[in-house]
Computed example of a mutant assay.
Amino acid sequence: MFMNIEEIMEECVKCNASDILLVPGSPVSFQVNGFLRTYIEFIPDDEVAALVKEVYRKASRDVENLMSGKKDDDFIVQLNEKVRFRVNAFRTLGNPAAVLRCVQDNMLETISQSIPEKIIKYSELSSGLILISGSPGSGKTTTAAAMLEHNNRNHKKHIITLEDPVEYRMKADKCVISQRDIYTDVADYETAIASCLRERPNIIFIGELRGQKATEAALKAAESGMLVIATLHTKGATDTLSRILQNFPANHAESVSMQLANTLRVIIYQKLIDRIGEHGTVVFETVENITAISNLIRDRKIRQLKNVQHSNPDLLPCSMEAKLLYAYRDGKFSREVVTEYADPEYRSWSETQMKVIDMLRNSGKADEYRIGQA
């Protein structure tokens, strides 16, 4: 074998990589700031399989869980006291493969410093639903963990986290904390959320909100006076709300829309974007559930959300387009990045705004730019 799995894990930590990719037919690779970096160029398929099996042995887990079943296998493997890896093992053309996400407890405080204080403060809400959306690997769980840790350090509350598997292990400070591993500590998400109603938490964190029953339970918990923070693999507020409503049959649409309109507090959408000279900066968009938004949800006119966001002076500055344009003004993002990541319907508008910024910059007044300026 070229290297053992512990050596690869240790190298991953040294490189500040977020993931290790062990896939037959491909190099052993690290994900660093959103980009793949080859670590072992040429490696036979049987060596990759041996590395995956070594991951299983290190986790005291039977690889037959993967090879004899038809589902992926998710679990945690510990490197040392401070570093562990969240493993997603799967089969490709009958061969074992895995992606290992590096989780370092001591990195949470450092990463938290890059999360806007406004977003952290949302976790001080007493009840309702906070949805954190973004693509896989964009840092949704890290954002949620930072919000929970803020409460743990500053408020006396009862926090329950429900994850598959638990990613950040929290050490109780001012809070009482229960962390439940789905399929190990409890049968499934819907059972876990329902049991929370009897356990009197102030905050429930749901690692991934999916399916009708789990969503029903989450909405009920939010209605019952708890703060529910949940992540979804979605792209923006419109996609997030649509995904939730799609979990339900048409005859439930009206009642669910009412529940969602009444319980939603904010949607946080985050995206990993390259800065000039750097990689992997997270940009946050927030959509607070003001009256105009709750009316759209209640009337099931979700597709109009982006238009309302851009026409409302309270919502526009928090939009993804505004964050991109301010970063362009400050020399952090290129014109191409703004155009690429702006909503397709607002790319032309963003181009016009960048021309305004360029005019102000040429006269030495770029810092006077305000979003929507003509």
Rank of each mutant, 00 (worst) to 15 (best):
R101S: 01
R101C: 02
D105N: 14
E109R: 08
T110S: 14
I111Y: 14
S112Q: 04
P116T: 04
I120L: 15
I120S: 11
I120Y: 10
K121L: 14
Y122N: 04
Y122S: 01
E124L: 14
L125R: 14
L125E: 11
S126I: 11
L129I: 04
S133W: 00
G134M: 00
S138G: 02
S138P: 00
G139M: 00
G139K: 00
T141M: 06
T143I: 00
A144L: 12
A146Y: 02
N151K: 12
H155W: 10
K157G: 03
K157P: 01
H158D: 09
I160D: 09
P165I: 06
V166R: 07
D173L: 13
K174L: 15
V176C: 04
V176P: 03
I177P: 06
Q179I: 05
R180W: 07
R180N: 09
R180S: 09
T184R: 14
D185P: 10
D185L: 08
V186Q: 02
T191Q: 12
R198I: 11
R198L: 13
E199S: 12
P201M: 11
P201R: 12
N202C: 05
I203H: 11
F205G: 05
I206S: 07
E208K: 07
E208N: 09
E208S: 10
G211M: 02
Q212H: 03
Q212Y: 04
K213E: 15
A217S: 12
A222L: 03
A222W: 04
E223A: 00
S224A: 15
G225T: 08
L227M: 12
V228K: 00
A230C: 03
A230H: 02
T231P: 00
L232Q: 09
H233T: 05
H233N: 10
H233F: 04
